[in-house]
Amino acid sequence: MSDVIQQLLGYFQSGGYVMPPLLVATVVLWWTLGYRMMALRRGSLRSPRVMVDRQMQGILPTNQGVLTRVLKKGMKLRDQNLPDLRRYLDDAFAEEANEIRKYKVLITTIVLVAPLLGLLGTVSGMIETFDSLGDMSLFSQSGGIAGGISQALITTQMGLAVSIPGLIVNGILDKKQKTLEIEMAQLKDYLCCPIPDIQPKTA
């Protein structure tokens, strides 16, 4: 275990001054992605129409999620027979609408900035390499040619390692967010319009 820790420390030291910001960016990125995963829980596998029908029948959902929370709020407002119900629903659903968008901008910023930080480390490493070439020093106190090339490659690798998984996961979460926003709009439509009872056809 200690060998692994020593290798990781050596890896980060080889990356130079760009590695601490990249490490912080990694921690913040995955914390915010985890938060969004929890915030985007749907709460039910049923369609919005079925959820409304079951709620009217008194069958309450057991799982907690975005749609179940907004449905409970919407049903309470609907039972009050308020005029212009949609306006009240917009206000009631605003908290969940903001919650599912939370940290979206921060995640996008980190995903975009991480490769640029890696590029900054690459440029710094190449500058050190060319300085060492001028002195013809393969190894020196500052790293020399080998240290400069190592820093350039490590920071590029780290920047991409932070950005690519974050980009993929964030894309999946964005798609889930858009789906939830559409389903929330459908819930508003179902709650605002009277839902007729479906009577069995007689021969």
Rank of each mutant, 00 (worst) to 15 (best):
M126D: 04
M1E: 14
W30E: 04
Q57K: 14
G43H: 00
P83Q: 11
K188T: 14
Q64H: 03
A161E: 03
I110K: 01
L71H: 02
K102S: 02
M136S: 15
W31T: 14
N63Y: 03
A97L: 13
E181A: 12
N81Y: 10
G43T: 02
L22H: 08
M158H: 03
W30P: 01
L160E: 08
Q6C: 11
D135V: 11
I168K: 07
K176N: 11
L191K: 10
T202K: 12
E183I: 05
I198S: 09
T108D: 15
A92G: 03
Y11W: 15
I100D: 02
I110T: 02
Q6P: 10
P83S: 13
P61T: 05
T179I: 11
Y35H: 07
I172Q: 12
I110F: 00
I145M: 14
Y35T: 09
L187Q: 03
Q7I: 10
Q64E: 05
T108I: 07
L133M: 14
T179Q: 15
T202L: 12
A97Q: 14
Y35G: 01
V111A: 09
Y11H: 12
V66C: 08
G121R: 04
V113L: 14
M75D: 01
R87N: 14
K176F: 02
K76R: 14
Q6L: 15
L106I: 11
F93H: 08
K104F: 05
V52L: 13
M136T: 14
P48R: 00
L119A: 01
V52C: 03
S137D: 13
R86Y: 06
Q64Y: 01
T68I: 02
P21K: 09
L160V: 08
S137P: 02
R78T: 02
L160K: 08
L85I: 11
K175I: 08
Q55L: 08
V28C: 09
G34Y: 03
V27G: 07
S132G: 14
T179C: 12
V113R: 02
G58I: 05
D135S: 14
G34R: 05
L160R: 11
G125M: 09
S44A: 06
I172G: 06
R69Q: 10
S47G: 04
G43D: 01
L173G: 04
R87D: 12
P115A: 08
G159Y: 07
R49P: 00
T26E: 06
A25E: 08
S132E: 05
T202Q: 13
L119R: 02
S44D: 07
T179P: 00
G15P: 10
I107A: 00
R87H: 12
S44G: 01
A161P: 05
D84F: 14
L85N: 07
T108Y: 07
K176M: 07
G58S: 12
L167C: 06
Q13M: 15
E96M: 03
E96R: 01
I198A: 10
V52P: 00
L9Q: 15
K104D: 12
Q177H: 04
G148W: 01
S44N: 01
V105I: 13
P83Y: 11
S142R: 13
L45W: 03
I195H: 04
G147A: 09
I164T: 10
C192Y: 01
P21D: 04
L82T: 07
Q141W: 04
L77Q: 12
L116A: 07
L33Y: 03
G15S: 10
A152R: 06
F139K: 13
Y190E: 06
E96G: 01
A185G: 06
E181D: 09
A203P: 13
I5M: 13
K178S: 12
M38P: 00
